[in-house]
């Protein structure tokens, strides 16, 4: 039984890389849109306060609400990233299984 470790590592990387790249491609527009909305809403709160349309207390409540909303967006991005990592790891592990089974000549895994 001979297993080429560096070849396996390369195959594992090849299996994982496109999954992680595609995940970021999918998440990027969402992250950009929400970051822009967060910045715009903070600017609007500042403007309303300057114009005297809201009090300081109201401005602080609005800021906290916007911050909590954006933190939820970041948590979603973190979760989507973890799902991508999970998929990449499982794809890489599937490569090991194929290679090990081939190397030993029967289906151990």
């Amino acid at each position: 039984m001979s297993i080429n470790v560096s070849a396996i590592a390369k195959e594992m990387l090849n299996a994982a890389k496109p999954i992680l790249q595609n995940a970021w491609k999918e998440v990027k527009p969402f992250a950009e849109k929400e970051s822009k909305a967060f910045a715009q809403n903070l600017a609007m709160i500042g403007k309303l306060k300057l114009e005297g349309k809201i009090t300081k207390e109201e401005a602080l409540l609005h800021i906290q609400i916007q911050k909590n909303s954006f933190r939820t967006v970041l948590l979603a991005i973190q979760g989507l990233g973890l799902i991508a990592v999970e998929n990449a790891l499982n794809a890489a592990i599937a490569v090991i299984a194929t290679t090990v089974n081939k190397a030993i000549g029967w289906n151990l895994l």
């Binding site: 909305a37 909303s69 967006v73």
Partner: peptide
Amino acid sequence: LLKGAFESQYTA
């Protein structure tokens, strides 16, 4: 402001 914040939060 509130509508925007909650929409983003639910969407996420």
